[in-house]
């Protein structure tokens, strides 16, 4: 079982990202779950979303998760959210930030000694999609760090997932995914 926790602000697309990932993974015959913690909070509130991936049917519906990957798509959340909750010794962190990995770890001691990757999904999405929607670039970074799928396969499936959007936006998302894949460190 592979478990992923997203830290996001409501409106940044973590739920869409988690569902998109689940959709792509599902096409490979694996079983998936994508869910989120909801409250009545509006746009901008800190929230979490989750993925489970397994070769077996996923029966576990507990919200509790000791994640293999923690994806933080809002740069400020590493300072205000409990993003290391229930971490495992080998939990991998992929964090959206304009800082370098070293600078980030220096600014947030909780990350010392952890497997930390950084990428500026906010900047990438602003420059490609034109809006700070860091969810799809984060998936690009995840593909690179996890080696889950080949980029071509992943992008091809993301095009299908995003098919209701205008072509221009889909194209921009593909560029964003590729850039994050290339830029994550």
């Amino acid at each position: 079982m592979l478990e992923i926790r997203w830290h996001s602000r409501a409106g940044q697309g973590a739920v869409t990202g988690a569902k998109g990932l689940a959709d792509v993974v599902s096409t490979t015959g694996k079983h998936v779950q994508a869910f989120a913690f909801y409250g009545s909070a509006k746009r901008g509130a800190a929230m979490t979303a989750y993925n489970r991936v397994d070769d077996q049917v996923i029966m576990n519906h507990e919200k509790f998760m000791a994640p293999d990957y923690v994806l933080v798509i809002d740069p400020a959340l590493v300072y205000v959210a409990d993003f290391t909750a229930f971490e495992k010794p080998d939990t991998v962190y992929i964090i959206t930030t304009h800082l370098s990995t070293e600078e980030l770890v220096a600014s947030q001691p909780k990350l010392q000694g952890k497997k930390v990757y950084t990428v500026d999904c906010i900047k990438i999405s602003q420059e490609t999609i034109g809006k700070a929607i860091p969810n799809t670039p984060m998936l690009g970074a995840l593909m690179k760090v996890s080696g889950m799928y080949e980029m071509d396969f992943f992008k091809e499936n993301m095009i299908r997932v995003l098919k209701k959007l205008p072509q221009k936006i889909i194209d921009a998302n593909m560029i964003a995914i590729q850039r994050a894949y290339d830029e994550v460190k």
């Binding site: 599902s26 079983h31 998936v32 779950q33 869910f35 989120a36 909801y38 996923i58 519906h61």
Partner: peptide
Amino acid sequence: QDGFMTSHTAQG
């Protein structure tokens, strides 16, 4: 169905 735990959980 369970609110959120099923209603908002995407699965195959």
